[in-house]
Simulated scan of single mutants.
Amino acid sequence: MKLIEFEDLPVTPWKNGGGVTRELYCHPAGASFDSFLWRVSIADVSQSGAFSSFAGVDRVITLLEGEGMDLVSDSGNHVLLSRLRPHRFRGEDQIAAQLEGGACQDFNLMLRRGAAAGEVQVWSVDQNLEQGCNLLFCVQGRWDVLTQDGEHVTLEPRQSLAWDQPPGKVSLRSLSAGSVLIGVNVNLK
């Protein structure tokens, strides 16, 4: 189990200058954009513009902060991201984002197609996970996390817990009203 402090993560500017990203976790550790199997990051989006292309990668994006982001594909499809609603798309799709009312922050899961499959879940009530998960991110409030092996951590806002292998049964307990937690489950093929 690894506790990750958001403030300790290095900030990396995007190639197009439209924002910055912070990598929460990458598997395998230290892998490049061409060799990761799965990756989780948080991006600050300061202006409208095109998404970077990631051929062969499935993506799940979840808006954390901001009034919304309209995603427009080259085929003309529109998806308006609203807060805490995960949206899946293919990394090679040509996507342009139009910010709705200013800067946004989003949570990103990237999965190498054919090597990893996964999902993002958002919880606001206590959970008992029979199979655990790979990563937890505390969006707001406080959460007690207890594994079947007796590991116990209290997550504060913007803290994460990550496991290379899910720890089996995990109990998640909200410690304050309005608490929100994101969970990432990944299966390597």
Rank of each mutant, 00 (worst) to 15 (best):
E67D: 14
G68H: 07
W38K: 06
S41T: 10
G76R: 11
Q47S: 14
D70F: 03
R39S: 15
R90P: 04
F54S: 06
A43Y: 05
V79F: 14
L81Q: 07
W38Q: 05
G68W: 03
A55Q: 09
V57L: 04
M69H: 00
H87E: 00
Q47D: 12
F36R: 08
G68N: 06
F89L: 11
V57Q: 02
N77P: 10
S82W: 06
R85S: 12
S35R: 13
S48G: 09
H78T: 08
L63W: 05
T62W: 00
G91H: 07
G66I: 00
V60D: 08
N77T: 14
V40Y: 00
V79D: 07
N77A: 15
G56K: 04
V60C: 15
N77W: 09
D58H: 13
F54T: 05
H78R: 14
G66R: 03
E67R: 15
W38R: 03
L63P: 04
T62S: 00
Q47T: 12
L63R: 06
R83A: 14
G68D: 06
D70G: 06
D58I: 11
D44H: 07
A43P: 09
I61W: 01
L81D: 01
A55L: 11
E67N: 15
D58E: 15
A43D: 07
V57A: 03
A50N: 08
R88A: 15
F54V: 05
E65M: 12
A55Y: 08
T62P: 02
A43N: 07
S73A: 13
L37Y: 10
G91N: 07
S53M: 11
S41N: 08
S82R: 12
F89M: 04
S46D: 09
F89C: 03
I42D: 03
S52T: 10
L84M: 04
G68K: 06
T62F: 02
G76D: 11
R90L: 12
I42H: 04
M69P: 01
T62M: 04
S53D: 08
